[in-house]
Design a protein around this nucleic acid. Sequence first.
DNA 1: GGTATTATTATAGGTGCACATAATAATTGT
DNA 2: ACAATTATTATGTGCACCTATAATAATACC
Lengths: 257, 257
Amino acid sequence: MQVDLACGHLSPSKGIYTQKPETLLPQNIRHSWQSVRRYIHGKILDKTYAPGDKLPKDDDIAQTLGCARTTVQRAMRDLVDSGHVVRRRKGGTRVRPDPVTRATFDIPIIRNEVENANRSYGYQLVNVADAVIPNQVATSFGLGNAIEMRRIEAVHLADNRPYIFEDRWVDTRTVPGILDVDLSQQSANEWLVRHHPYSRCEIRFYAVKATAAYARHLNTAPGEALLVMERTTWIDTAPITSVKAVTVPGYQLLTCI
Amino acid sequence: MQVDLACGHLSPSKGIYTQKPETLLPQNIRHSWQSVRRYIHGKILDKTYAPGDKLPKDDDIAQTLGCARTTVQRAMRDLVDSGHVVRRRKGGTRVRPDPVTRATFDIPIIRNEVENANRSYGYQLVNVADAVIPNQVATSFGLGNAIEMRRIEAVHLADNRPYIFEDRWVDTRTVPGILDVDLSQQSANEWLVRHHPYSRCEIRFYAVKATAAYARHLNTAPGEALLVMERTTWIDTAPITSVKAVTVPGYQLLTCI
DNA sequence: GGTATTATTATAGGTGCACATAATAATTGT
DNA sequence: ACAATTATTATGTGCACCTATAATAATACC
């Protein structure tokens, strides 16, 4: 027999748990890891376990609830993923001292994003050049000295209208192959994804006022507020690419589920 | 004996895997779920399994690699979490037809964010009123008819300078208790977190031009580009609150590790 | 006596097995 | 031919046992 403790809440980064919190623990019935998760989450929410507090060790919780430790561990792993608790071997489990709301975003291939909205996708190369990277890009890569990279500017179109302007720098030391690619036919994005998977990716979001250039490429007015998604990738510690995706006014990014 | 297949890549939403891809599979040694993950991820990256393709069933992979199916399943679950594959009972495992980059962001309590940056935190209530929600808020809640809610405007300060302006609507039907809270002393955010945990949370990011009011509250110039983080929460299907966190110019949001 | 080094051990992490569950396909009955 | 039922099959879940690791205690060394 499997009974749900029905004591739950949601981690926005995970699936939806619709049950209300509950801190009772019917014993001697089979608990699912999800009900255990809700049980513990409930205790975190009602401050039985406050930020920074140490939780009982898995074994104890398992014994208290009458289930296997693995079940508790499964619940705990989920709570770690949602940013609620921190676990360390021998150190035990603690409620995160600085509670956060964890949000997960899926950043699709622009072509897919456009086509899924039933709009026609287009791509247009604006410029390719070799130049010394500006300070901002050097900072993103964590590079002290400013070296030369290949700069690729392009516009992604939806229904023949500008959608995202892409300002990309590619490290030709790491990715020499980019020099032989015909970027007017194939977007650097898709070529890189296919040929140079990354081992590390850092993303940052911010807003900028449309410069004259941005306004021109995005066919909008200078001074408009634009959401920028900046992505920097490495393979091991070698820089691959850093790209600013400057979106059209009104663009919104939503959490997945 | 445990040997690493060393065939890997990173899911940005998860830990860092520094190994390069590898599609060989030394047999008859014990594989960890992480090496299995890297092995499969490698095959996805090199298009052995292309977007939309069906992967062999767990049992087959387990047998091929000479490990238990649970180990494969653990790897698969991680690949699901990172948005690489989709799994369905009986339906098997498929490579996501629309590959995405999955990014995870931690949105901290503003007080913590400020204090962790070694700055002094301050909070100032701007206005409290009851009013009919504007269309944008109704849309966020998914409500057809415009009802009345309590609107709370406040500014969060860092080192006595505006940091984030918060424009919040609270559903007094779901959260009547808010009417008795002295919001000049306690931010609605912290009170709600403590007393009304949500079961569902939706977040969206976008950029806006600073209106005259925003400029005044944030002590900046009208027309500046501001990053907005909008959060809407529910308990079950009942609306709790929808809040626009309008950030100061230059604010950036970074992925967590 | 204090510091660096080693040993101990508590606690989370990982693996393999058996069984549960859900979605599809096959079969049966009308 | 259609609907209801049963069988099949792939993933999901829980459990027992083993391993890895980090905090602490014990020891050796100046």
